[in-house]
Structures are given as structure tokens and as C-alpha cells.
Design a binder for these strands. Structure first.
Lengths: 213, 213
DNA sequence: CCATCTTTGTGCACGCGTTCACAAAGACAT
DNA sequence: ATGTCTTTGTGAACGCGTGCACAAAGATGG
């Protein structure tokens, strides 16, 4: 039976082993003292807890460059996501194959969502169309939305929205790049301690929250 | 002179006003007691601190769907980034206009970087090509890399890499979606307290760090 | 010029997450 | 069986960031 110790995992992930053990204990995962964790069992438990064992049908609305990129992205399938439909408002796009799947017109949106039991929608439309698409998704039963459009969406309670701003990461790099050049005063600001992207923290983590347009 | 109080800003941003004032104090920004902060001055100071006032030339390598989407993304220009060149390994792509700019061949990579003084590179290639592209970028003088390819890049000290995984956000939504359905045991896990995406925290923030493939 | 009122800047306390450190548990050898 | 050795699970201490609360600063009006 292949096993790993919390110490090995912690070293590989670059975190403290005690924290890792405590985290595992929240999942109810039990290791064996003196041996470690059964790899197969551990992977299964974590996968289940994170929802990787479930099949999540998603729809992608707005098949421009970004929508097409997402449709082709391999990482989705391997994490339990299944692209149920690609939807675009442009009648010219309807029927066109993208990522081996015909694009469908926005008119079909409600039917597609209900037929496939979709609860997660991805918005990759221009900013102007995003709120309207969002409203229709929610009305049709979607309860989680991933928004790539540069707008803040308004949704009723019970619906989760996460906004992805592709320029934020670039912003963070530029912030550090600036500090590399001018070596004045990286002193009192506590947030700037870590320059490297922490393995266990998020894509942000070390840049101030406030940012003007 | 238009001003804002920390209280107003805090309410708008959904954070505590004391935290906001303390953050501003790190930037050396000075407000006026009894009045608030001069909006124009404040915007300028924050912009400068974040590097928004500088002009950052960037190159995008790998002009597939994602690369094209990034090239067309409006948010870059407004944040001080200037796309200096679009680079692709496919000779068929060379000269093709994307986002009003001709795609250039990989052979030109080193020359482009040096001619434009590029210090930030974006990798949107397939996983297999990413490390090789990364090595060439670094050798040519790039010191910050934004990686969209699903690989972990190895770089020398002094070079910053940030990896963007487009499926992580979807993963987080699915995680919460799962909890909405099965209402068993959202109890002992401390991480799951906040369901909404915090305005001042990162795209992640409330999902375990360890994740199997 | 003084009184009052507003809002900043910050010392201090609280709370939460991380880390330390160790007892308990189990494997494995003798 | 008994002892030793490894690694877990977790109580307790530590450290850091957040929020409270207030003195200092400056505007504004009488």
C-alpha cells in the first residue's frame, strides 16, 4: 500500500506539515500513525470533498476569442467539468463548430440549461451584454456564475458570482517589477514581504486592494 | 476641491474604514483632518504606487484563442500596459493581423524584447512549448512572466512567475455549489465560512490548497 | 480668536490562523 | 508479548492583521 507522510507532502507543497495535518483532519481523513496517509484513499477523499468526483455541466456564453479559448481548455474536463453548450448571440456563429461542438443561439439558452440541469454558467461576452445574460442564466436556474466580462454583476441572494480580471495578474507583476527597479522604500509596507507567488495562497495576496480605474 | 472621507470609501468598497486609513498611511498619503482625502491627489498617489503611471511594454507569446483574447482585452491599455508584439511559432500566423497588429514569428523574439525594452512576457502557448519559450524570454532579458499554460515553469532567481489556471475559479464555484445541495456538515471546516467572493481578498481565499490532478 | 465639529492617523486589544511540541496510536522487530 | 520507532492528531502558544476608540489636527462659524 503506497503511503505518504505529512512531512513529505508538506515539503513538496512548500507548507508546514502541522498545518497540512490539521487541514486533513477537518476533512475527516484519517492517516495511520507511524505510517502516513494511504495515497489512493487520500486522493479520493480530497477529490470528493472538492467536488471533483461529480459531473458538472456548464454553459459558456459568448464565443469570442476568450469563449473559444475556454471551450478548448483541457483543464476543465480533467476536473469534472463538462461543457454542455456554447452559446452566442450572433446568428452568424450558430452551428459553427468550436472545440468540436456546434455553437447555439442565445434563444436556446433557457431550454439548454433546463434540459441539461446546468447550475454553473460562464460569461465571456462583452461588458455590455453581461448583466442581461446573467439575468437570463439566473432566471433559468443557474446558481453559480463565472464572469470574465469587465463588469460587476448584480445577482439575487443565493447566487454565487466570481469575477475574473485577466489584467490583475499582470498588474501584480508590474507592481513587483517596479520595485525591482527603484529600490527606495520597500520598508514599512507590510504587504510587500513576499515577492514570489505563494503556493498555498491565491493569485493575489500581496497587492493593495484598492485600485483606481 | 472634491474630497472623499475614508468612511465613504470604506462603505463603497465594503471594508472597514480604519483598515482603509491604515493602508493609505503606508502609502504616505496624507488626507486632511476634518475634510478627507483630495480625490485627484489620492488617485494619482495610488496609481503611481501601483505602477499605473508607467508604460509597461509586454509581449504575448502564443497567439491561439487565448493569446488573441488577451491581445484584444481592453483592460490592459487602461492599466498602463502596451502590447509591444504578438509572437507565434506557426509561420502561417506570421503577418496575420490580430487586434490590429501583425503577428511576428518566434525567430524575432529576442530582437523584439531588446528593441522595446520589454521586461514582462505573457505565455499563452500549449503546455509543451511553455518552458522553452520561458527560457528564451528570460535569456533575452524578461524578468516577469505571466503563465497561462498548464505547466509549472522553472526560472532563475530574480525572475517572477505567476501562473493563471482558468479552471480554478470554476473549481471554487463547484465547491460551493456542492455545499448548497448537500447540507450535511458545513460545520467544523473553518475555511468555508464566507461564501461570497470577498472584495478585498483574492480569487481564491476559501478553498483548500491541496488538489489532486 | 476661540469654540465646536468633523475626520484623520494610530496605539492598543482582540481574534484567528499558523506553528510548535508532545502524548497517543499503531507498525514492526525481537 | 513487549519494546522501540515512526508519524499522526491536537492542545496550547505565538504572531499578525483587523477593528476599536481616541487624541491630534485642521476646517468652519460665531
Amino acid at each position: 500500500m503506497p503511503t505518504v507522510s505529512s512531512e513529505e507532502l508538506a515539503a513538496a507543497a512548500g507548507v508546514n506539515s502541522a498545518k497540512l495535518r490539521k487541514d486533513f483532519s477537518y476533512l475527516g481523513s484519517y492517516g495511520t500513525r507511524g505510517v502516513g496517509y494511504d495515497v489512493e484513499y487520500l486522493v479520493y477523499q480530497i477529490s470528493r470533498e472538492l467536488g471533483l468526483t461529480q459531473d458538472w455541466p456548464v454553459v459558456i456564453v459568448g464565443i469570442g476569442n476568450l469563449g473559444a479559448a475556454l471551450a478548448n481548455y483541457g483543464g476543465f474536463a480533467s476536473r469534472g467539468f463538462r461543457v454542455a453548450a456554447l452559446i452566442d448571440a450572433d446568428p452568424q456563429m450558430a452551428g459553427k463548430p468550436v472545440a468540436g461542438m456546434p455553437v447555439q443561439h442565445t434563444d436556446e439558452l433557457e431550454r439548454i440549461i433546463q434540459d441539461n440541469g446546468v447550475s454553473i454558467g460562464v460569461i465571456a461576452t462583452p461588458a455590455g451584454a453581461a448583466q442581461q445574460v446573467c439575468d437570463r442564466l439566473v432566471a433559468a436556474g443557474v446558481t453559480s456564475i463565472l464572469n470574465f466580462a469587465p463588469t460587476v454583476l448584480t445577482v439575487p441572494d443565493g447566487v454565487d458570482v466570481r469575477k475574473v480580471d485577466l489584467s490583475i495578474e499582470l498588474q501584480i507583476l508590474a507592481f513587483h517589477e517596479q520595485r525591482k527597479a527603484g529600490e527606495e522604500a520597500a520598508d514599512t509596507m507590510p504587504a510587500v514581504a513576499a515577492r514570489k507567488q505563494p503556493a498555498d495562497k491565491g493569485p493575489d495576496g500581496d497587492v493593495p486592494a484598492v485600485m483606481p480605474a
